[in-house]
Amino acid sequence: MKKILLLPLLLCLFLTACQDDEADTGPQETTIDVEVRKEVKASSGSIKREPAKAIIHIWPAEDRDFDVEASGSDIHIGSLYDKNSGEYKSAKYGSVGDHMNEPIEPGKYFVYVVLMKSSQSGSLAYSYKYFDIKDGETLELKKTFSHDVPSETFEAWDKNQ
């Protein structure tokens, strides 16, 4: 008789132990991943890509028309001039280093990258672009500066891709 009572109990235990353990992950997080590199020319003439220290700023760009030149050096501290409003806007996301990975809200954005000041060529070279990111997307943006980019000059984002 005890065996008959034990059998339904074991069956219930087995069925509950075999339930799907995967939890509903819900909506995916929206993430921006920015990577900065610079080409380095070896004495042999070969060129390799290495991580480059930089300042990375990102601004929301819905209904905005940013002017990098009008911003002057204020852009290095995260303040960018918007021609539509006639005001300076503060960066919403930022990082110092060769990489930035941040959760971000979906929408239109403007990214600005400037190499750190150094004695090497390319010091304070910069690049920027507008981009859109969708809900649940992980967007990878990679900027590789040329080995011969002059200091304090603009280089198109898509060069060296």
Rank of each mutant, 00 (worst) to 15 (best):
Q120I: 12
V96T: 15
F110Q: 13
H76P: 01
S90P: 03
I77M: 11
F110S: 11
S90E: 14
G72A: 05
F110A: 12
K143D: 07
V96F: 10
K83G: 05
E155S: 13
D158P: 00
N101R: 10
F145I: 14
N84Q: 15
L141Q: 06
S90M: 13
D135I: 00
S121V: 10
T144N: 09
S85F: 12
L124I: 04
Y130Q: 02
L139K: 15
E102P: 01
D158G: 08
E87H: 14
D135N: 11
G122Q: 06
L115W: 09
F154M: 02
G78Q: 14
Q120W: 11
D148Q: 06
T153Y: 13
N101Q: 08
K142T: 05
V111G: 13
K134R: 06
S95K: 14
E87C: 15
F110R: 02
I104W: 01
K108T: 09
K134N: 10
K83R: 10
E155M: 12
S127M: 06
K142E: 09
E137M: 13
S90D: 10
Y81N: 09
N101A: 03
Q120F: 03
M116I: 08
D98E: 05
A70F: 05
S79E: 12
K129W: 01
W157C: 03
Y128I: 04
S151Y: 15
I133N: 00
S127G: 10
V113Y: 06
K108I: 01
G122E: 08
F110P: 13
T138Y: 02
I75Q: 14
E140D: 08
P106N: 03
E105N: 07
V149Y: 03
N160S: 04
S146H: 10
G107R: 01
D132Q: 06
H99Y: 11
K117N: 12
H147N: 05
S146A: 09
P106A: 04
Q120S: 08
V96H: 14
Y130I: 05
V113I: 09
G94N: 09
Y88D: 05
K83Y: 09
E102A: 15
I104F: 00
I104H: 00
N84F: 05
D132V: 07
D158I: 04
V114L: 06
L124W: 03
W157H: 03
P150K: 15
N101P: 01
S90L: 13
A91D: 10
S121C: 04
G97H: 07
E105V: 01
A91E: 08
K134P: 00
Q120L: 06
E140V: 08
V111T: 15
N101F: 04
L80E: 09
S95F: 08
E152R: 07
E69I: 08
E102T: 07
G78T: 15
Y126Q: 08
F131M: 10
L124E: 11
Y88T: 11
L139W: 03
D132R: 03
G122N: 03
T153H: 15
W157K: 05
K143T: 08
V111N: 06
